[in-house]
Design a protein around this nucleic acid. Sequence first.
RNA 1: UCCCCGAUAGCUCAAUUGGUAGAGCGAGCGGCUGUUAACCGCUAGGUUGCUGGUUCGAGUCCAGCUCGGGGAGCCA
Length: 459
Amino acid sequence: MTPERTVIRDALTDVPAGTVVTVAGWVRTVRTSKGGFSFVQVNDGSCLANLQVVADKELPNYDSEVVHLTAGTSVTATGKLVESPAKGQSVELHAEDLAVVGPADGEAYPIQPKRHSFEFLRSQAHLRPRTNTFGAVARVRSEVSGMIHEFFRSRGFVQVHTPIITASDCEGAGALFRLAADNREEGEDAEREFFGRPTYLTVSGQLEAETYACALGKVYTFGPTFRAENSNTPRHLAEFWMVEPEMAFCDLAGDADLAEDFLKFIFAGVLERCREDMEFFNTRIDKTLIETLTHVAETPFFRVGYTEAVEILSAADRKWEYPPRWGADLQTEHERYLTEEKFSGPVVVTDYPAEIKPFYMRINDDKRTVAAMDVLVPRIGEIIGGSQREERPEVLTERMSQAGLNPDEYWWYLDLRRYGTVPHAGFGLGLERCLQFITGLGNIRDVIPFPRTPRSAEF
RNA sequence: UCCCCGAUAGCUCAAUUGGUAGAGCGAGCGGCUGUUAACCGCUAGGUUGCUGGUUCGAGUCCAGCUCGGGGAGCCA
């Protein structure tokens, strides 16, 4: 493409007025005064704002093309950047050349210059990044992904690429997608297993991450994760991205400290680096967004034991659809009460009953609870789930058997405890839930480019 | 998977007690010498999600199905 192309973000901020530049992008709206000239709003995705291109009738293609420009058309424009005489933008581009690269039939183009419902835009997942909201989501998502690596690397964590295809059913993490090779030879056994054993798409990189933590000390994984649950909610996806740090020589308190520092780093960073996009979300999606994120980034998280949480809930002056009961998992209504009413902010709930948590969580001295933690945030609920891992081989074997798992199949996982075992802990953060909290978007399908949910994988 | 709600023009929605569908935006054309989701006028555009039923007559009532949304469960 044109090597001297200027991105619109730079044109609006960095380039001195008077400079001649070439920009390239997609038309958002056109306002034409037939007697004189047209105002063409061009967006190239480099930032939320459009560049206003002013085209007058002296342009050779004015009557033939410019006045017929429609939303969605790709264009290049060359001209001088000048201070805008009108309100709405600091600079505008006075076009000396405005060329159509690819036309878009205005009658058929689905993204009209008007407000669309998110439901409709989900059916246009290939074009929705051309809207303000989804362009902003994409930029914020990218920035958050970058900051995740930044946070862990700056603290000495090593990134480990754990496998997507796995034979281990990380018990407690939900239903699995079973893999089947699709290239069988004629007459070959339909039940043939490519890997010689049943394999699945991973539900968590945790078990594999533990092996590297027990060698390199501090590690993290960041990649796609799959759950075959028939979940139909605004908080669940069949394919989502998860961040999973794992630390050797670390207990539950250290794990919770890391989770808190991590979230604060991300929230503060996104406010600083994605100012324009965040202000857009604050204006259009949730008017309390920036205030909430700022508050969360600056205030210590509340920490409360599960047992105490149940007592708080039982003492609360309200009717519960599911009355809190020691031994039962916290209901959505309970989590919302804790984060939205009792503490008005993130809450870390620790030490859950052993029966409701997976085999790998460390049994506490009271024998009835495990060193687990959930970080709950307003509106979303659980954003992080983690634990200190059971490092005592005999206790772990016992827990596996109780859970109905065959310890022999986890021989390599048990080896970590047989040879130089150490206390270790980690957690999992759902990237999309984090992005929901950051952007204020109510449906998780709107913070991932191509959402996979039951009955939906078109794009 | 369970419980509610919904599906009408390209999009967002209207349509009294069942009486053969309207508006805004968008699009096309015209008007307006700087507009900001511009504005004004005209035009085109619909087998009311699908299948069946009740009725003289169904967008409207009933049943099933499909898809979507919200709540719950599962979890991140």
